[in-house]
Computed example of a mutant assay.
Amino acid sequence: MLYHLLYPLHSTFIGFNVFRYITFRCICGAVTAFAIMIIFGPMFIRAMKRLQIGQVVRDDGPETHLAKRGVPTMGGILILFSISVATLLWANLTNPLIWLILFTMLFYGIIGGLDDYRKVSRKSSAGLSAKGKLVLQVAGAMVVGLFIFIHPGYDGQLSLPFFKDIQPDLGWFYIVFAVVVIVGASNAVNLTDGLDGLAAGPTVVSAAVYLVFSYLAGHVVLAEYLQIPYVQGSGELAIFCGALFGGCLGFLWFNAYPAQVFMGDVGSLSLGGALGAIAIIIKQEFLLAIVGGIFVMEALSVIMQVGYFKMTHGKRIFLMAPFHHHFEKKGWHEPKVVVRFWIVSIILGLFAIATLKLR
């Protein structure tokens, strides 16, 4: 919005020419989203307490988590608000990719919000049915996959890190692949959101990495030089990534141990869905498995645990899944688990950026 209002004035005052630069607007988007979180965070927390919208804790989880019962939840609403406002203020709103990514984030936010509402209203850990939630997630991802596949300049080719000459073409099956990536990312972040700050930290790192890749993918010269797919208009997604970075960083201010608020499914499902959609849009799908390695590890730990439990009729690989609970059961304090997962996430993020030259 500010881009459309102020940039046309550059012919009158040269200072407004700064609004043409994605880097400037990206930083402004990050700062705006962060400021919204810091300013409105305390008011949101007080409102959630007043409405008695608190965390529901399962009885079969770690005993230390019982203290989290009643802590305000659904903080993802404020995250989505901050990201949306910052993006709308600083992005070029004539770019359809901006509207696509906002649609994805908000659609998955609605799914998570419905799930959270049912949990809170019932005072139970049972929200939407797994089948119902999955159907809605697939429907939203199908919209993204179809849009991308029929959008001019896109095709069914995959971009593989480390292999510049290998680009398999999936054809129409790419839509199915897009659904798997987006739904998988959404649920992986949701599974990770089990400790104070655990989901928000790696999301900050992932947003920063995809900010870089979005900007490069939208710059024809840099994309050609680095031998990554050029996606026209994707540079504007760097502004969304900046807002995602700032919003999650601001949320960590209140979500760090001991958490004053949790993001809930409205936050985790939407943030994961947004990361998956960005990966699809800029044709860096497999990069998400690297930069989002923490999310992948958490999801795989659940799949392995459930599969092994059924195969062996009751035996377990981990003391408890998702993976972060395994370390809690081993006696690690929650802050130690979270910070070490953040460290691993940062290392993976740096490695993901290094793939730009490993092709």
Rank of each mutant, 00 (worst) to 15 (best):
L2P: 02
L6F: 14
F13Q: 11
I14G: 07
F16I: 09
F16D: 05
R25C: 13
C26T: 14
F40L: 14
F40H: 05
P42S: 04
P42H: 03
L51F: 13
G54W: 00
G54N: 06
R58P: 01
E63F: 08
R69N: 12
V71K: 09
V71S: 08
G75D: 02
G76Q: 04
I79M: 14
A86Y: 03
L88T: 10
W90V: 09
L93M: 09
N95K: 05
N95M: 10
L100D: 06
I101T: 15
L106N: 11
I110A: 13
G112C: 03
Y117R: 13
K119F: 01
V120C: 01
R122W: 09
A126K: 14
G127T: 05
L128A: 05
A130Q: 13
K131H: 10
A139V: 14
A139N: 09
I150Y: 15
G153W: 00
G153N: 04
L158Q: 06
L160I: 15
K164G: 12
D165W: 11
I166G: 00
D169R: 01
V176F: 14
V180M: 13
V180E: 01
V181Q: 02
I182F: 01
G184M: 05
G184P: 00
A185L: 00
A185M: 02
N187F: 00
A188K: 00
A188V: 03
A188C: 04
D196G: 01
L198K: 00
L198W: 05
A199D: 00
A200I: 03
S206G: 08
S206E: 10
V209G: 00
Y210L: 02
A217M: 02
V221A: 11
E224S: 14
Y225Q: 14
Q232D: 13
S234A: 13
S234W: 01
L237V: 04
A243Y: 03
L244D: 03
F245M: 11
C248F: 07
F251K: 07
L252V: 11
W253V: 12
N255F: 09
G264N: 02
S268E: 03
L269T: 07
G273F: 00
G273R: 03
I278Y: 02
I280V: 15
I281D: 02
K283R: 15
Q284P: 07
F286I: 14
L287S: 03
A289S: 13
I290D: 04
G293F: 08
G293P: 02
V296T: 12
E298H: 12
A299T: 14
L300I: 15
V302T: 12
Q305K: 10
V306F: 07
Y308N: 11
K315R: 14
I317Q: 12
F318G: 06
P322G: 08
P322H: 10
H325I: 11
F327K: 08
K330S: 08
G331C: 11
P335M: 10
K336P: 04
V339T: 12
R340F: 11
S345C: 09
S345D: 06
G349Y: 13
L350C: 15
L350Y: 08
A354C: 10
T355L: 12
